[in-house]
C-alpha cells in the first residue's frame, strides 16, 4: 500500500504518489476501453480500482478505501470475470470492437472534454493550494455515525435497492424460476 492511513501523520511524498497512482489509473482506464479481450479490460479495471483505493488513503478516507478494495476489487470484479468466462468470448474477439456511431460518440466525448477543460481553467482560482488539515483518526466511527444517524433513510433505501437487485439478478439469470 502506498500511503499510510493512520491519520496522525502526513502521507509522505504526496506529489510522487499522486502522479504515480493517477498515471496508473489513467493507463488502466485507457486499457479498459481499448483492449479487444474483455478479460484484459477487467484486469486493467482492477488496476484502476486498486490505484484509486490508494488515492483514497491519501485523501484520508481509509474506510472508503477498504470498501473499495473489498466490494469493487474483491466482489464486483470477480463477478465480472465470472460472467466473462460464462459467456464465450472466442467469437466476439474476432468481430468489430467499436459500434457504428463511434464518430458521433467521439465528438460528444470531445465536447464534454472541452467543457471540462473550460470549467477547470476558469475555476482554477476557486480552490486554494492546500486543502484543510487532516480530518481525524476516528474516520470509520464517524462515517458509521453519519450512516446510521443523518443518512439513516438513505441507508435503508440502499438496502431496499440491494434487495431489488438480488431479485432482479436471479430473475434475469435463471433459466426457469
Amino acid at each position: 500500500m502506498a500511503a499510510d492511513p493512520t491519520n496522525h501523520m502526513e502521507p509522505v511524498a504526496t506529489p510522487f504518489f499522486f502522479y504515480l497512482l493517477g498515471g496508473l489509473m489513467l493507463i488502466g482506464g485507457v486499457l479498459v476501453i481499448t483492449r479487444k479481450n474483455p478479460v484484459h479490460s477487467a484486469l486493467a479495471l482492477i488496476v484502476t480500482l486498486l490505484a484509486q483505493a490508494s488515492i483514497y488513503l491519501m485523501l484520508y478516507a481509509p474506510f472508503v478505501a477498504g470498501v473499495q478494495i473489498i466490494l469493487y476489487a474483491g466482489g464486483i470484479m470477480v463477478l465480472f470475470l465470472f460472467v466473462i468466462m460464462l459467456v464465450s468470448i472466442e467469437r466476439s474477439q474476432r468481430e468489430r470492437q467499436f459500434n457504428k456511431q463511434w464518430v458521433v460518440g467521439m465528438v460528444a466525448a470531445t465536447a464534454l472534454g472541452g467543457l471540462f477543460i473550460a470549467v477547470y481553467t476558469k475555476g482554477r482560482g476557486i480552490f486554494p493550494e492546500h486543502a484543510l488539515p487532516a480530518v481525524e483518526a476516528q474516520n470509520t466511527q464517524n462515517v458509521g455515525t453519519l450512516l446510521y444517524g443523518q443518512y439513516m433513510f438513505a441507508f435503508e433505501i440502499a438496502s431496499l435497492l440491494l434487495l431489488v437487485a438480488i431479485i432482479g439478478a436471479v430473475v434475469m439469470a435463471k433459466k426457469r424460476i
Partner: peptide, 19 residues
C-alpha cells in the same frame, strides 16, 4: 502498522487472491 480499518483491510486484500 495499526490501521484504522485493520479487519476490513485484511478481508479485502485476502479476497483479492480470488482474482
Amino acid at each position: 502498522t495499526d490501521m484504522n480499518i485493520g479487519v476490513l483491510f485484511m478481508l479485502g486484500v485476502s479476497s483479492l487472491s480470488a482474482l
